[in-house]
């Protein structure tokens, strides 16, 4: 079953068209990697799916609910606020720069949404935080503040924060780009573990080896269009596409 269905979306920033008709779907339990050069529109695509950017036209359907569709005069029509809020909770997002709340402890970073959005009791929320932090290997950091953690630890907390809402799909926007190579490994290991648990994920990444390793499907984007889509083997090994080859060659050097 498709959790995300994206149909022909277009998005411009003033005169610059960043997404030029993107369509794809993401099935339950699938891990989809999106690769491509900087400025290809990968992050914008993720931001449209998480409703941080509004599309100009096209459609996005998440978990069978229509987030946005296009009317006959080619204008994007968004669902009402309530529906958007419901859909929003199904899609988690992990940012490149973590975006933890610096004035909250690790625990409160995780529990805040549980208490104020899902209306769990404080003790229930706390239990979940502990459980998630154990999974991330950070249970000893529960009372720490973000500034006391390494970048890799901060990113693991932000993954725990996103998982706390039990999303149907978790999106990663270049989750390791702000980290040292050393710390990158620990984040990739966490994502890999989630993949083994059949978490549905969409990962925008520059880590080619990783994308190849964990994905069921890979999308290569360039200049606002999907150039190629297929299994990791299709895209990384068997590709005959000139643009894909050129892009991958730069990484293999």
């Amino acid at each position: 079953m498709a959790i995300i269905e994206v149909g022909n979306i277009r998005k411009s920033f003033s005169s610059l068209e960043v997404l030029k008709g993107i369509s794809f779907s993401l099935n339950e339990g699938e891990v989809l990697s999106i690769i491509g050069p900087s400025g290809s529109g990968k992050s914008t695509l993720l931001r449209c799916i998480t409703n941080l950017e509004q599309i100009d036209s096209g459609s996005i359907i998440i978990g069978g609910k229509t987030m946005v569709s296009t009317n006959s005069s080619n204008q994007a029509i968004y669902a009402d606020k309530h529906t958007l809020a419901t859909i929003g909770l199904k899609v988690g997002l992990v940012f490149q720069n973590f975006n933890l709340f610096p004035h909250f402890s690790v625990e409160r970073n995780i529990t805040e949404a549980l208490v104020h959005v899902l209306r769990l009791s404080k003790s229930e929320a706390q239990e979940q935080a502990i459980e998630l932090l154990q999974k991330m290997g950070l249970e000893d950091k529960i009372k720490a503040y973000p500034y006391q953690l390494s970048g890799g630890q901060q990113q693991r907390v932000s993954i725990a924060r996103a998982l706390a809402l039990r999303p149907d799909v978790l999106c990663f926007d270049e989750p390791t780009s702000a980290l040292d190579p050393e710390l990158t490994g620990e984040i990739l290991a966490v994502i890999k573990e989630l993949a083994q648990e059949k978490m549905t994920m969409m990962v925008v990444t520059h880590e080619m080896a990783f994308a190849r390793d964990i994905s069921n499907r890979v999308i290569f984007m360039d200049q606002g269009v999907i150039v190629e889509e297929g299994t990791p083997e299709d895209v990384f090994v068997k590709t005959t596409n000139r643009r894909t080859k050129k892009f991958l060659n730069r990484f293999n050097q």
């Binding site: 998480t50 409703n51 941080l52 809020a85 929003g88 909770l89 899609v91 988690g92 997002l93 940012f95 720069n97 975006n99 933890l100 709340f101 610096p102 004035h103 805040e112 949404a113 104020h116 959005v117 932000s158 924060r161 996103a162 809402l165």
Partner: peptide, 24 residues
């Protein structure tokens, strides 16, 4: 980015203002 994180987590604008923005 913090405001975006708050939005993705489903916080209302008011909650974001009173609990994320103002304390900082």
């Amino acid at each position: 980015g913090q405001l975006e994180a708050a939005k993705v987590l489903g916080f209302t604008k008011w909650h974001t203002f009173t609990h994320i923005t103002m304390p900082q």
